[in-house]
């Protein structure tokens, strides 16, 4: 009679490897469906009334570059019920008002700063936004820049040079103010403003409590 065989134990070592392989195989979902599809990376923050300097790693048709600017939240103002949309004015209802977000910016005239979006977050976590491609109301190109001198766009094609402007457009000044409007409930208390050019990056400017 042969001695009893020892039970196989190789699976004990294989199990963690299998679990790791499964997680790695499915792991792409986390960056694609969560991290890159929302605001998940705070690149700078500061309090209202103080200058916050921002350097955001990004890329255009020519490769990587840093979008550098400084921003200061002066405060919130206004509570008109007339809201200017992309096409027409309309009257806000249901207790909503157009709140002005007063911002000061400093940046080199060559930095592309069109297409920013602003989100006001209230003390209940509700988000009110202007400037995003998927926002049904409000402007979505010149939210953070002067309307007449918005400065350059980020080149999408290799043929476009960085920092180039349309012929009849003057360069953006080195310092300017912007006061876009966001439709919000009149009685909401806001805790922060977020500035974002592309997901997942955003800048937080905290409002006084």
């Amino acid at each position: 009679m042969s001695p009893a065989r020892r039970p196989s134990r190789w699976w004990i070592a294989a199990t963690p490897v299998a679990i790791a392989a499964m997680l790695a195989g499915n792991g792409f979902r986390v960056p694609v469906f969560w991290y890159q599809s929302g605001q998940h990376h705070e690149i700078a923050s500061g309090d209202a009334r103080e200058w916050v300097s921002v350097s955001e790693r990004t890329s255009d048709a020519h490769g990587d570059f840093s979008r550098k600017y400084s921003v200061r939240l002066v405060g919130l103002g206004g509570e008109r019920t007339a809201y200017e949309t992309r096409y027409d004015d309309f009257a806000l209802r249901d207790g909503m008002v157009a709140r002005t977000v007063n911002l000061d910016f400093r940046a080199d005239p060559s930095v592309p700063l069109k297409h920013c979006n602003l989100t006001l977050v209230d003390d209940r976590g509700r988000e009110y936004r202007v400037g995003h491609l998927f926002d049904g109301i409000g402007p979505n190109i010149t939210v953070c820049v002067p309307e007449k001198t918005p400065g350059p766009s980020a080149p999408v094609l290799k043929n476009d040079a960085r920092g180039s402007l349309p012929e009849d457009e003057l360069p953006r000044p080195g310092e300017w103010s912007a006061s876009p409007e966001i439709a919000v409930p009149k009685d909401a208390t806001f805790v922060e403003l977020r500035i974002s050019f592309e997901n997942p990056d955003y800048v937080t400017l905290r409002l006084p409590r």
Binding site: D94, Y128, R129, D135, G136
Partner: peptide, 10 residues
Amino acid sequence: AANLSTGVRH
């Protein structure tokens, strides 16, 4: 399709 702003009826 509809793009909705928070709290604004569409």
